[in-house]
Simulated assay, not measured.
Amino acid sequence: MEAFLVSSGIVAIAEIGDKTQLLALLLAAKFRRPLPIILGIFVATIANHAGAALVGAWVASLIGPDALRWALAASFVAMGIWVLIPDKVDDDAAPNAPRLGVFITTVVAFFVLEMGDKTQIATIALAARYHDWLLVTMGTTLGMMVANVPAVLVGQAATRVLPLRVVHIVAALAFFILALLLAVDGIPHLLG
């Protein structure tokens, strides 16, 4: 039981302010469909954290931390630009679902963005510490849900109070700032 409780707590705390939590806000503001987003986060987290030990080690050995940092910075810029592209939606209608659907879009986006993330690394370390991948996976998944479900609900509510354009600009700025921070952090590694 300790593995479950410690895993839940560590990941819930680590996820606060993380890029995947920002993604939860963004998806909720863009698609205004919290249930498929929450279910998508759940499925992506289970898949990602259950395979964290194998996939995380494999990706890190292929890409390396410096290349991963720059790839994430570029993806944040791309996400920021994507947020600024207005939807072609009537004012009274909810946005159309993406071609793959809100659920599949969420699963793919969360799974990919979680690769190499601190919560994925924490999952690997916790599984090594407790030697119980199932309880650790269940705990880290609960931690992700504790942190991200409120983000989805806040993102959904924000679109009712604030103009959608303001939500998009704020989200884009957050992604651009994260990209800048990653780039600045990577400069010393480039200079050697």
Rank of each mutant, 00 (worst) to 15 (best):
A52W: 01
A122M: 09
A183K: 05
R69V: 00
G116R: 04
V170G: 09
L68T: 03
A147N: 04
A74C: 12
H131D: 15
P36T: 03
E15R: 04
F76D: 05
D91P: 12
A47K: 04
H168W: 14
L25Y: 07
G101C: 03
P98Q: 05
I124A: 04
P163M: 00
V43S: 13
M1L: 09
L62C: 01
M79N: 06
L180A: 14
L126N: 03
V154C: 08
P34Y: 07
A97T: 11
T20S: 10
I41T: 08
L100N: 14
V107I: 12
V11H: 03
A71G: 11
A60P: 02
F175E: 03
A67Y: 11
V55T: 02
T141S: 10
I46Q: 01
V184Y: 13
G143P: 01
A47Q: 05
L39S: 06
R129T: 15
G186D: 07
I10F: 09
M115R: 06
A122E: 11
V107T: 06
L178Y: 08
A94M: 14
S7D: 03
A14Q: 01
A94D: 15
F110E: 06
V107E: 03
L27P: 02
P86W: 05
T106L: 01
M79S: 11
G40Y: 07
V102T: 15
F76H: 09
I16W: 02
A127S: 14
F103N: 03
A122N: 14
A171G: 10
F31V: 02
W133T: 14
A74E: 05
A67T: 10
M1E: 10
L25P: 02
L22M: 12
T119M: 03
M144W: 02
K30H: 12
R69I: 02
A28R: 01
G80D: 03
L173N: 07
A53Q: 11
A183E: 10
T123W: 00
P150T: 05
G192E: 03
L126I: 06
G80S: 03
T119E: 02
R165N: 09
I177L: 13
I85D: 07
P65F: 13
D87E: 14
L182T: 07
V83I: 13
P163Q: 05
V55I: 10
G17P: 01
T119D: 07
I85Q: 10
A179S: 14
V149D: 04
M138T: 15
A128R: 10
I169Q: 13
V149N: 07
F103L: 14
V89C: 11
P95G: 03
T106D: 08
Q120M: 15
A94H: 13
A47T: 09
A125N: 13
A128Y: 08
L39W: 08
L182K: 08
